[in-house]
Amino acid sequence: MSNPIINELIQNRIIPESICHWSELKGGTHSKVGVIGTLNSPKMYVVKSNEPQRIAAETRFFQIYKEIPSLPSVRYVDPEYRYFVYDFIPGETNYNRTRKQELMSDLTKLMLQFYVQAESLDEYEWVEDPKRVTEDILYSESIIGSHLDAADHALVKDIHLRRQKRILRADLYVLHGDFGVHNFLFEEGKLYGIIDPLPKLGRRLYDVLYAFCSSPDGLHLPILVNAAEQLGNEPIQTHELIEDMIMALYFRIATCLLHHPEDLTLYQTAWKEWKLY
């Protein structure tokens, strides 16, 4: 084949010589992702290339959680972290927007309950660092603008100030970091695989909220309370959970305006519901 990475993998006997099929997929902002296989099985492995620090971070994440079946099984990591190879996971990112409660329950059973606390090797960014969150608020405010009222922007800043102490006390886990429906694979409507982490450190609740807000359906308090309770950490403080949700929803509205403006009305409806709690 003319692809240099595939030729390198074949020469080093990482993949069989019968590999002759390559199809490029849409990856992340900086990733290049291709599916490779044989004439009879065109989808056997995925080859993902990126900046070395990104590849090192992602493959470290997969090493930590290598026992989780819903995550890719890594076959090979380039010693210089230019790329890595994992087994192809079948499925589509066609999430059914009427099944939020089922999705959140499945995410806990397949992934969230296995999260581990960070070790010294896990030098990932702390996603809820108060300084970082302040910057994220200001950036989101610049995107959202008049789509929310001035009082709404002020509410988010007040919540940020109030919750800093409990954020600082929280245990830090190794998180997926991009835990949204765009990175979930479904087979016949059921959650089957989880791909493309951007590993971070933080509370498990961060990934819960990220997943919950990543689609505009089912954004109701009982569903979120049920998902948070399934983590089994400690009794849920509902008022704190509501504050965390308002923060997560605020950031999601900014993301929506940038990438999925067609969902804005649904997120604005959810915002009105949550700020009344």
Rank of each mutant, 00 (worst) to 15 (best):
E24K: 12
A254Q: 12
S2Y: 11
R99N: 12
P235E: 09
L161S: 14
G180A: 01
L138P: 01
F212I: 00
S120L: 08
Q101W: 06
P69N: 12
L249Y: 05
M111E: 00
H30C: 01
R163L: 09
P4S: 04
D158G: 03
R60T: 08
P69Y: 12
L219F: 04
N40L: 05
T265Q: 14
Y277K: 13
T98N: 14
R82P: 00
Y124T: 01
L121E: 14
G177H: 11
L191A: 08
N226T: 05
H153V: 00
I15W: 10
K32E: 11
I36F: 12
R163H: 01
L71S: 09
N12C: 01
L257I: 15
A56P: 06
V208L: 06
E135C: 02
N233T: 08
H182N: 12
L198N: 13
V35T: 11
D171G: 02
Q101H: 14
T238L: 15
G189W: 09
F179A: 04
Y65E: 06
M111H: 13
P130H: 07
A151Y: 04
L107H: 11
E262V: 03
A248I: 02
G232S: 07
D78F: 06
Y81N: 15
T98F: 12
E67D: 15
Q53K: 13
E240L: 14
E141G: 01
D136W: 07
F179I: 00
S49N: 08
I89D: 05
L138I: 00
E187P: 03
V47E: 04
Y124R: 11
V174P: 03
H239M: 13
S18Y: 06
N96L: 10
K275Q: 14
K200Q: 14
E24G: 07
V133R: 08
K66R: 15
K26D: 02
L257Q: 10
G177T: 04
K275E: 05
L221K: 15
D178N: 12
F61L: 11
Y124L: 00
Y210I: 00
V46M: 07
N233Y: 09
